[in-house]
């Protein structure tokens, strides 16, 4: 089997130089080309920092201590640095929670899109870049791409901005797309539309997707496989169908019980902490990490 696009192994993260606090305690996960994998957990569980470590973003702030290994597209990224920086925007891209605040308010979409395209092709002419940007925006069903390019983010709706972000993220045909709670700031219908769009585009291009989410409903719709993360540890790993039909870890069961149902019943009480939640990682059949398969 080929090497996964993203392989995180025994990742540990500690913040702070003097008052140290450990937030990841050995996270392992992998995403293969074309796969859609979800990383699910409550806020503060470490899912967003895992994504930012994989992009090499967190390492640049200094003040963090990383152990373990992250391989992105064949490049070792755990220490951060130039190699992973050069992959960003080209081989790995990211979609953010609130698209409107993730676009620069002082520049038109046009300028930002050119910059994105030029990270892959530095010598791209303005005209060529604009043509590609328009094509990319048309692909995400933006009705008047030329007008959108001439707009500032604050002039467009949240849904439009989300589409712009998706177009930018996929413009350089990355092999991995990390979506950090995409559209959580948007209303539900727009969120659903953009997720669908992202899924279709990723599928046609064979882009692997790592979806970071706290929303099991979204995960069930979207992902092939699911990692459940709790307090900096992966507690359960399964195919989506397996996880929803047969949740084995007490924390996963508690999370599933917390999905509000339209049919009533209300929200059950989910204990904030439970000694059960600290149970060891559960791996469903056929879901071993690639390096665990070899003898």
């Amino acid at each position: 089997m080929t090497e996964p696009v993203l392989a995180i192994r025994d990742l540990e993260l500690t913040f702070g130089r003097w008052r140290r606090s450990k937030v990841l305690h050995g996270v392992s996960l992998h995403v293969r080309a074309g796969e859609k994998v979800a990383l699910v957990g409550e806020s503060g569980s470490g899912k967003s920092v895992t994504a930012r470590l994989a992009m090499g973003l967190l390492q640049e702030t200094g003040n963090v201590d990383v152990a373990g290994s992250i391989r992105v597209d064949g490049v070792e990224a755990a220490a951060g640095g130039r190699q992973i920086r050069r992959l960003r925007g080209r081989r790995v891209a990211m979609i953010f929670q609130d698209p409107t605040s993730a676009l620069n308010p002082a520049f038109r979409i046009r300028g930002q899109f050119r910059e994105v395209l030029r990270t892959a092709e530095p010598g791209l002419s303005d005209r060529e870049a604009d043509a590609r940007a328009e094509a990319a925006l048309a692909e995400v069903s933006i009705p008047d791409p030329a007008r959108a390019l001439n707009s500032y983010a604050f002039q467009l709706s949240g849904g439009m901005n989300q589409r712009v972000m998706i177009a930018m993220a996929l413009a350089n045909r990355p092999s991995l797309l990390i979506a950090d709670e995409p559209g959580t700031a948007l209303d539900v219908t727009v969120q659903a539309q953009t997720l669908e769009l992202m899924r279709d585009l990723a599928a046609t291009r064979g882009t692997a997707v790592l979806l970071i989410s706290h929303n099991l409903g979204v995960v069930r719709e979207f992902a092939d496989r699911v990692y459940v993360i709790y307090r900096g540890r992966i507690v359960e790993h399964a195919r989506t169908a397996q996880l929803f039909s047969d949740p084995r870890h007490p924390y996963t069961r508690a999370l599933l019980a917390a999905i509000p149902k339209i049919s009533g019943g209300g929200l059950p009480d989910l204990p904030e902490r439970s000694p059960d939640f600290e149970n060891p990682r559960i791996v469903h059949e056929g879901c071993a990490e690639p390096w665990e398969l070899r003898p």
Binding site: E60, R85, R88, G89, F96, D98, A102, L103, E115
Partner: peptide, 14 residues
Amino acid sequence: GKPYVEMAEAYGFR
């Protein structure tokens, strides 16, 4: 500290 700078970093702006 704004998301658009993180975005610029995530998209490989130099």
